[in-house]
Design a protein around this nucleic acid. Sequence first.
DNA 1: GATGGGACCTCCAGCGGCTAGAGGTTCAAG
DNA 2: CTTGAACCTCTAGCCGCTGGAGGTCCCATC
Lengths: 151, 151
Amino acid sequence: MARHLSIGDLARATGVKATTIRWYEAEGLLPSPARTEGGHRAYGQAHLDRLGFVRHARELGFPMPAIRELLGLADQPDRDCGAAHGVATAQIAAIDEKLERLRALRAELARVAEACRGGRAAECRILEVLADHRHGRCTDPLHAAPGAGPA
Amino acid sequence: MARHLSIGDLARATGVKATTIRWYEAEGLLPSPARTEGGHRAYGQAHLDRLGFVRHARELGFPMPAIRELLGLADQPDRDCGAAHGVATAQIAAIDEKLERLRALRAELARVAEACRGGRAAECRILEVLADHRHGRCTDPLHAAPGAGPA
DNA sequence: GATGGGACCTCCAGCGGCTAGAGGTTCAAG
DNA sequence: CTTGAACCTCTAGCCGCTGGAGGTCCCATC
C-alpha cells in the first residue's frame, strides 16, 4: 500500500507547521486532502508541491490574495503570464515602499537616540523630542528631514 | 471659553482619529478625561500633549509596551533616562532587522520577476521559481532550515 | 423654545497571518 | 494489546487599530 503523507510529514518536509497547513486548507490555498478511515489528512505529492509553492510565495511576502492569484495562474497554463509578472511587480513596489519608510524611520530614530546624553529623565532629549509635536504633524515620517522642520 | 477640548478637537489637532483616541484610553496610554454632564469626554492641554507624545512615538514605530515605558519615564523626571535610551536602541535594532529581511526579500523577488519573459503561464519562470523550492540562493535565515527534505 | 443634524457615546466584530490550547480520537511501534 | 505520539476539531488570542450599529448629546439657528 502506497504510504500517504501525513500532515506532520508535510510539516517536516516544508517547515510549515501543521496548524498553519490546516489553516491554509481552510483558507483555500491548499485543496482538502483525502482522509484516512480515522479522519486523518492523507496527502500526496501534489499537495507537497503546492504547499512548497505557497510557502515560498509567503516567504517572499506575497499577501494571501496574491498567492491565490498566482495559484490560479499556475493551474491554468494557457493563460498569459503577464498577470504573474504584475503580481510580482506590485509586490516589489510594496516592499520598496516599506523599505523607504523604514529607512526614514531609522534615520530619525537614530538622531533621536543620539541626542540622549544620559542623566535625569527631565533633561532627556529623547523624551523631549517625543513630547514636542511641532516636530510631528506628519502622517508620514518620510519628510521628517533633520535640517528642515523643527529648528 | 474653551473650557475643554472635545475628542474631535484632539483628533483634529493631532491627526489621530477619535476611535483611536478612545482606544488609547482603553489601553491606558491616555488617562481617562473628565466627562461633560452628558457623558462626552472633556480634555485639557495635558491630554493634548500626551496624545502628541504617543502619536509621535507610534510614528517612530515604537510598540505600545515601549510607549508605556517611555510615558512612565516622562512622568518621573528624576529617573535615569538610560532606560529611554535603551528603548530607543532596541527599536533601532528591530528596524535594522526588518530592513535586512526586506532587502534580501526584495533582491530575490526582483530576480524572480526579471526571469519572466511573458508568454504562456506554462513557461512562466515566476511560477516555476515559486514552485521549485530547492532553488536556494536566499539569504533569509527563515529559508535556510530544511536541508533534509523529502528524499 | 424647538429643531435638526452633526458629533459624540458604547459595544462588538473584523482585518492579516497565523499560533496556542483544550479536550478528544487514531495510528503505529513494541 | 498497550502505550504515547500524532492527529482531530473548535475556540480564542496576538497587534494596532478600524468600522458599523444603534442610540444620545450639544449647540447653532430659527
